[in-house]
Nucleic acid binder design. Structure first.
Lengths: 104, 104
DNA sequence: GAATCTCATAAGTGTGTGCTTATGTGTTTG
DNA sequence: CAAACACATAAGCACACACTTATGAGATTC
């Protein structure tokens, strides 16, 4: 099941934080590590998990590896969420407004 | 971090299946267990995790406990997803169509 | 009110996960 | 080509997690 892999990837707070940081702009692993109390191998392992979940993709640049958000994972989550749309209450209107605002 | 709790809840395949089954209609724990090779305590524990993640809510009915999807959890995921909307590609159009279809 | 039913909790166990240190791989630089 | 650098992989360890059996807590039925 590929969705559970995505959820599993985001279930770890550190990994979630890495993803959020990466969402502010693509970075290499060393830059990501700045400000985070985490070893180099740990970062590498986390990025590997995020990559397998299609939440992140890499691009080799010389001896650096540049990481960026992979839209595939996000779209998969959106697709999963869409299946349960029938359960969304009126509150969904607030979210729609939020989405519209972020479109600007 | 409350989002990681939701993701952690959905990271387990069994729990994910329970949620999906519950999305087809509210049920008590015994009905949920039908067709699933899982012990009664295991089901109870899974439901407890889903409840803490606000993905599911309970309603006592006599000696039965009726479970149903809690929209709160879904809305929280939608909110998390919305933060990364900038990364959604053209493919988002296909999803929008899907969402529109499910509105009918 | 005793038996039965639905569900929750307790306690114990094997497996998975996230971390560490140590080392390997590939690239750039002097 | 040797040293330095960025990153990946290996191996080992502590802890979390999903499961089991056993038992407890409430509610219904006879």
């Amino acid at each position: 099941m590929i969705e559970t892999d995505i959820f599993k990837a985001l279930a770890d707070p550190t990994r979630c934080a890495i993803f959020e940081k990466l969402a502010t702009g693509s970075m290499n692993a060393s830059a990501l590590r700045e400000g985070m109390k985490i070893s180099q191998p740990a970062m590498s392992q986390h990025l590997s998990v995020l990559r397998n979940a299609r939440l992140v993709r890499e691009e080799r640049q010389g001896r650096f590896v540049n990481y960026e958000v992979d839209p595939d994972g996000l779209v998969l989550i959106a697709g999963w969420l869409a299946k349960y749309r029938a359960y969304w209450p009126a509150r969904i209107d607030a979210l729609k407004t939020l989405l519209k605002d972020m479109d600007q």
